[in-house]
Design a protein around this nucleic acid. Sequence first.
RNA 1: GCCUUUGUAGCUCAGCGGUAGAGCAUUCCCUUGGUAAGGGAAAGGUCACGGGUUCAAGUCCCGUCAAAGGCUCCA
Length: 603
Amino acid sequence: MSEQRYEDSKLYRIRHSLAHIMAQAMLERFPNAKIAIGPPIEDGFYYDFELPQSPTEEDLKWVETRMKKIISGNHAFTMREVSPEEAREMFKDQPYKLELIDDLVNGREDENGSQIAEPASQLTFYTQDKFTDLCRGPHVASTKEINPKAFSITFKPVAGAYWRSDENRQQLTRIYGTGWETEDQLNDYLHRLEEAKRRDHRVLGEKLGLFVIDPLVGKGLPLWKPKGAMLRDTLERWLRQTQLDNGYLPVVTPHIGNLNLYKTSGHYPYYSDSQYTPIQVDDDEFLLKPMNCPHHIMIYKSEMRSYRDLPVRYAEFGTVYRYEQSGELNGLTRVRGFTVDDAHLFVTPEQLVGEFIKAARLVQMVFNTLGLTDFRARVGLRDPNSDKYVGSDEAWEKASEAILNAVEEINLPHFVAEGEAAFYGPKLDFLVRDVLKREWQLGTVQVDYNLPERFNLEYVAEDGTRQRPVMIHRAPFGSMERFTGILIEHFGGAFPAWLSPVQAMVIPVTDRHIEYANEIASKLRRQGFRVEVDDGKQRMGNKIRLAREQHIPYMLVVGDKDIEGRTVSVRLRTDEDLGAMPFDDFSAMLRSIVESQSLDLKV
RNA sequence: GCCUUUGUAGCUCAGCGGUAGAGCAUUCCCUUGGUAAGGGAAAGGUCACGGGUUCAAGUCCCGUCAAAGGCUCCA
């Protein structure tokens, strides 16, 4: 059975129709408004307006009420074909519609002159009640197909959006709505939004004491608190060891570099907008390191390389700084200083596909271990019409082909996106959505023929000739900040035991059990576990509540009975009670769960 | 960067022209309690910051900073 396409669904027609009805109500409220476009989107719809002033809460309330009234009027949606002339006459006071009409009549071209839509000789109008819009449909047959209680436009603040998504053009007011078939579905959706807020890494970061962002330090510059640092450090140690096991070599490079380094790499002219201002020292200028690649390249270049040395795999958790626009900053997922789990592989052309596959498998292993199954893999190729790339066409061809061969060979479901390449080469990205459905790039593996060229990298081949290596840039996490942020949301703060900042909380029943509690805790700590004792003044019941709120995997309640039997009474954060266990049994259980990196709290 | 909204105690929020409030957290006292908040008291705020209007400003206006939701951007 094939799934129905969204565009063919009733929900799509309902939302599309709601957008028109919202435009009608808005024009009644703001008769001078200029209307732009209003499509259905995931979970709802929007419409863009140019307004004399921004709408108030009351305006929106009024519009929403008015929309319900229009819906209750049982108006038919009627379609009519019109000539371009008639369309222009109809919308003579609507400049955005006139622009759309022109594009439809002439066919749409992108900025490079490529035709992206065929010219049309006839246009279509859809009318409901007293409102007509230029639209290709489809819509519901009548407003009576819409449940007036199953939509809302006041759940979200109004947003600014550029006409045609171009920041050089007029900024319009976008009003979002959500619309469903039934009131229950609407309530479900609003409930889901609430739930998402609860899992938001910024909210959990505060509640679980993971990180803070203080304006006195700087926006986009998170401070990791002990529990957050522990989480991050655990991820780092894991990947570092995995990389050592796979032939990577550690390197360490400084946080700033001479501007000439980035001029040589080609990064500087391309991305000067998003770099911190250079630091002038004597006669030189230094840049806060915006990427690690050039540094690793210089290490490669510091010795004469033989084909016998290759592949060379240099790995570093390298912190980089990028001056992102302030409006783009977001918790841990978009920051100005972040640490890339970076590695650069220098390989022979023959080794390229094999090494690329190994790197891609490493990313997959990371995702699988953490149960991150809901991601998209994107092959980012260059935009054939853009000149923002360096290197020869031939190099790009080879690199793109290598990636496509590799994903094919490992059967990785993927999609291809032109224009998503790095400036130096094509790449494979792993994209994951956060709880608010925003998509973030995490892991990445990239092929690069260009930087070896720019830095004149070489190795001596078997026949004694000097050859040029190919580079692979890769980062399974992408950035420690973003990856941790997404993980917080993925687990809703309830991390698997091997990652939990605190793996077990020992809870004495009364004060006189604190000594035994400490004894248990130090024994576990000596075995390498992260354990705390709640020796506060609250009662046991409250301590259990607090440990649950922190999503600590194991609560070890100890009282007289436990002291007597040398046991711990184990309670899981899932509220399951494992009862009293001999201490050694518990530590053995914990060991096997942590070592297996299990996602489950019981073996 | 742009649009809109928000900014009161460590946290969550109430107050919205007339001498700063609650709950949780913190500190102290009582309570020693076997699996989701025992009782009491104290302390804690130049109401983000800077201007202005007013006899009087968390409360109205302007600016700055920060955050949120979008847009643009994302090596």
